[in-house]
Design a binder for these strands. Structure first.
Length: 834
RNA sequence: GGGCGGAUAGCUCAGCUGGGAGAGCGCCGGCCUUACAAGCCGGAGGUCGCAGGUUCGAGCCCUGUUCCGCCUACCA
């Protein structure tokens, strides 16, 4: 017997959390065995960035995963929760570069190799921070399997999939316009661009015809790019400009002659209906340029400064250039007017710098064939996305997807396995570094300096971590994984890519379910951010309230489709809940000391009414919690547990058990209650374990003979009430639900004894049928008499609330009603009405 | 521009396929009873965003509308 001692002492989470986590690790409780006969259950962790430290998003994400994983582990599955981290290309490079800057040096000064060595060193020191922090949360990952997107095995996987895609013609290299970050000095994908509405301007510029017969006015939000204009486009159907197509304009400030072209992409309604075309600096114009075979003049360079092609403006920053160009245009009389114009501006998601569309040589994944597969897999149900609303979002994105730019001009990442022969120019992509050019045999090969988008490697995560491309037992056992738990912010970045690459690499979806959870916000609904100063540190919360209370809070707030608004008050409330449980166990400890394990078990039918009742409620709660877990309804998991444990077990059952526990003259009744108490607490601690692992383990281990003792409620009892003649089955069943509910709520009020609230009105369903009404009234009388409740008044539909006295019950009443039967009749009847 | 979500008690939210408007916290009143005052019992408080419609009956279904939030997009 080691339940908490009766001595006064409040629940203190800290010691017990550290104690149990250490023991679980020592006992290998989180280890997964691929050779096991048990059915598999596997979740791969969304690998946190090595730059990260634990924030609320991680806390929520990992709590939900741990709840699922612990549930399945308890439920007889061979369970693997695969941990690891992501190298986070640009983010990590930026962090180390900032450190170098603080030391007065730079990555350029160090050179590629020394820089990478430095990043690896930093990663070794700081890269594991977040995973260590997950221990505090109680995360039951199989830590011995921890992987890193740039470790040896995963790098092999990256290279393998790259070569496969390349061999199949699904990866290509070419000169295209991409989103360029002038600060990070790299191309980034469309997804990595964050659009923000900004107050801009629309400048109207007059471009004169070269023959001096007139002019065309164009509108632009970026006047500095006019230096790179190589055409003006109008819509082919636009009457205003029909005569101008094919004529030549004289580009102001530059003096270049540029043509007027007709292109259907131009909207006649916007601006003046004539648009300047800058193929080098605008994605639309780039496409227009290809259609009309226009030359490209790059006037802005990779560093955001004007190139020599910008003539007098060369060397200026693009911002200064704008000011100067506008001033010069105005002086030259070219500027017709300027007006305010709201439009969205793209920013680098890593450093917030305004994105510059630039033409450069990049690598792309031809995405359509992959996207088609990934779409089909969700459409035909091989993978479910939950809550369902996200499926639509997924479809929408996948259907409008564009080729994925996967090359980055940074150093930290997987270097693209492409080699160019310096002799003949042949491009070779290979699984192992080639010694010589396969075409001309020259030994002089130079490897591509670009690295891959960080999401390329994390897109392989569900199978690369299991050993792919080798055929490992882990892969055979755990792929496809069971569920992926993540936030919607990386649905496209990560989930979509895993779908596409998983189908390509494994020929099967990477996961059966994708559960998308919400964002954690502060109590006012604001996104947490350092600048707002509203960040709540998960570790501080754990220090103050304990991991169990914190986890329970997150689960309780994780209603599907809603953001999670977290406040410390809420956590405090659930800490009180943990304390309540603690004290319930103390109460049990005070009353179970003399329970003899050899004593015969009191049969269910002979237990006192409240014992049968609570066992039935336990049974119902088990089913409710299971159903909620299976449906990822974490708020309902928490809600059911809270309601049952606090308001049914503690408020009612423990109170009612005091009388039989005190009566030494009725040993059977006392023993029955003791046995029930053990059974109920055993069930409570087990049910609680996925959400509150620490306190539940502590208290469960303290129970005498946990898990193998005490009566159980039958899973279904149907009470046989005769159907009144003339009443349709359906109506009778529904009426009985009401009747039963009324009886139950009346019985609930037994404990109140002084002030009984009005009973439920049992009449709503029965309309205008006098016979049925009379039958029900009689039945109600019978039930209440049976329950010893005195007169249960039956009222017509339009009656006011029943008088309270009608339901009052004398103190000390023994209840003989077969409660279990009644409650399960309700269940059965509900089934009948379906 | 397209799409999605939200609006229910002072606050945060739950309300499944249409039949009782609910929980937690906060507030008010009363209780140290074989665990827990970090507790127990009771109470007040809502035109379910607004306007129509369908229905015997609408928080829930339909139409319109307002206000928030988010995602997405190459109208310069």
């Amino acid at each position: 017997m080691s339940l908490p001692s009766p001595a006064p002492g409040a629940y203190d989470p800290h010691g017990l959390e550290a104690k149990w986590y250490a023991r679980w690790l020592a006992d290998g409780r989180f280890r997964a065995d691929p050779t096991s006969d048990k059915p598999p259950y596997c979740i791969v962790i969304p690998p946190p960035n090595v730059t990260g430290s634990l924030h609320m998003g991680h806390a929520l994400n990992n709590t939900l995963q741990d709840v699922l994983v612990r549930y399945k582990r308890m439920d007889g599955f061979e369970t693997l929760w695969m941990p690891g981290t992501d190298h986070a290309g640009i983010a990590t490079q930026n962090v180390v570069e900032r450190m170098l800057a603080a030391e007065g040096t730079s990555r350029e000064a160090l050179g590629r190799e020394a820089f990478l060595e430095r990043v690896w060193r930093w990663k070794a020191e700081s890269g594991g921070t977040i995973l260590r922090q997950l221990h505090r949360l109680g995360a039951s990952c199989d830590w011995e399997r921890e992987r890193f997107t740039m470790d040896e095995g995963l790098s092999v996987a990256v290279r393998e999939i790259f070569c496969r895609l390349y061999d199949e013609g699904l990866i290509y290299r070419g000169d295209y316009i991409t989103n360029w970050c002038t600060r990070c000095h790299t191309a980034i994908s469309d997804l990595e661009v964050e659009h923000e509405e900004a107050e801009g301007r629309l400048w109207h510029l007059r471009y004169p015809l070269a023959d001096g017969t007139g002019a065309v006015v164009v509108a632009t939000t970026r006047p500095e790019t006019m230096l790179g204009d190589t055409a003006v486009a109008v819509h082919p159907e636009d009457e205003r400009y029909r005569g101008l197509v094919g004529k030549t304009l004289m580009l102001p400030l530059v003096g270049r002659e540029i043509p007027v072209v007709a292109d259907a992409s131009v909207s006649a309604e916007f601006g003046t209906g004539a648009v300047k075309v800058t193929p080098s600096h605008d994605p639309n114009d780039f496409a227009t340029g290809l259609r009309h075979d226009l030359p490209r003049v790059a006037v802005i360079g990779p560093d955001g400064r004007m190139t020599p092609a910008a003539g007098a403006y060369a060397g200026l920053d693009r911002g200064e250039a704008r000011t100067r160009v506008v001033a010069d245009l105005e002086a030259a009389g070219v500027l017709v007017k300027q007006e305010a114009h709201r439009h969205s501006v793209g920013h680098c998601y890593r450093c917030r710098t305004v994105i510059e569309p630039l033409v450069s040589r990049q690598w792309f994944v031809k995405i359509q064939p992959l996207a088609d597969e990934a779409l089909a897999a969700v459409r035909d149900g091989r993978t479910r996305i939950l809550p369902e609303q996200w499926e639509k979002t997924y479809y929408h994105w996948m259907e409008n997807i564009r080729d994925w730019c996967i090359s980055r001009q940074i150093w930290w990442g997987h270097r693209i396995p492409a080699f160019t022969c310096t002799a003949c120019g042949e491009l070779t992509v290979a699984r192992t570094d080639p010694d010589a050019c396969p075409r001309c045999g020259a030994a002089a090969l130079s490897q591509e300096t670009d690295v891959l988008d960080t999401w390329f490697s994390s897109g392989l995560w569900p199978f690369s971590t299991l050993g792919w491309p080798e055929k490992t037992p882990e892969l055979a056992k755990f792929y496809p994984t069971s569920c992926l738990v993540t936030g919607f912010d990386i649905l496209f970045f990560w989930v979509a890519r895993m779908m596409m690459l998983g189908l390509k690499g494994m020929g099967e979806v990477p996961f059966r379910d994708v559960y998308i959870h919400a964002l954690v916000r502060d109590e006012h609904g604001q996104k947490m951010s350092k600048s707002k100063g509203n960040v709540i540190d998960p570790l501080e919360i754990i220090d103050r309230y304990g991991a169990d209370a914190f986890r329970f809070t997150l689960a309780a707030l994780a209603a599907q489709g809603r953001d999670v608004r977290l406040s410390a008050d809420r956590v405090e409330g659930y800490q009180r809940f943990a304390n309540k449980i603690w004290n319930a166990a103390r109460f049990a400890g005070m009353n179970l000391g003399d329970l003899d394990p050899a004593a015969p078990e009191v049969p269910f039918a002979e237990l006192a009414a409240q014992d049968r009742w609570v066992l039935t409620r336990l049974q119902a709660t088990v089913e409710a919690v299971r159903a909620a877990l299976d449906a990822y309804e974490f708020d309902k998991v928490a809600g059911s547990l809270y309601q049952f444990i606090w308001h049914e077990v503690c408020d009612w059952y423990l109170e009612m058990s005091k009388r039989p526990l005190l009566r030494t003259d009725a040993p059977t009744s006392r023993r029955g209650t003791q046995q029930t108490l053990v059974r109920v607490l055993d069930g409570v601690f087990r049910l609680l374990h996925p959400v509150m692992p620490f306190i539940s383990e502590e208290l469960w281990q303290g129970l005498p003979w946990p898990g193998s003792f005490g009566p159980r409620a039958p899973s279904l009892v149907v009470a046989a009430f005769p159907r009144p003649a003339g009443m349709p089955v359906d109506e009778a069943a529904r009426a009985r639900i009401e009747l039963v509910q009324a009886a139950v709520s009346a019985i609930r009020n037994v404990r109140g004894e002084m002030n009984v609230p009005p009973a439920r009105r049992v009449v709503a369903l029965v309309q205008g049928d006098g016979t049925a009404l009379a039958v029900l009234a009689a039945e109600a009388e019978a039930v209440s008499a049976l329950a010893g409740l005195g007169s249960l008044e039956f009222l017509p539909a339009d009656a006011p609330k029943p008088p309270q006295a009608a339901l009052a019950v004398a103190p000390g009443l023994e209840i003989h009603l077969p409660l279990a039967g009644l409650i399960d009749l309700g269940e059965e009847a509900r089934r009948l009405t379906k």
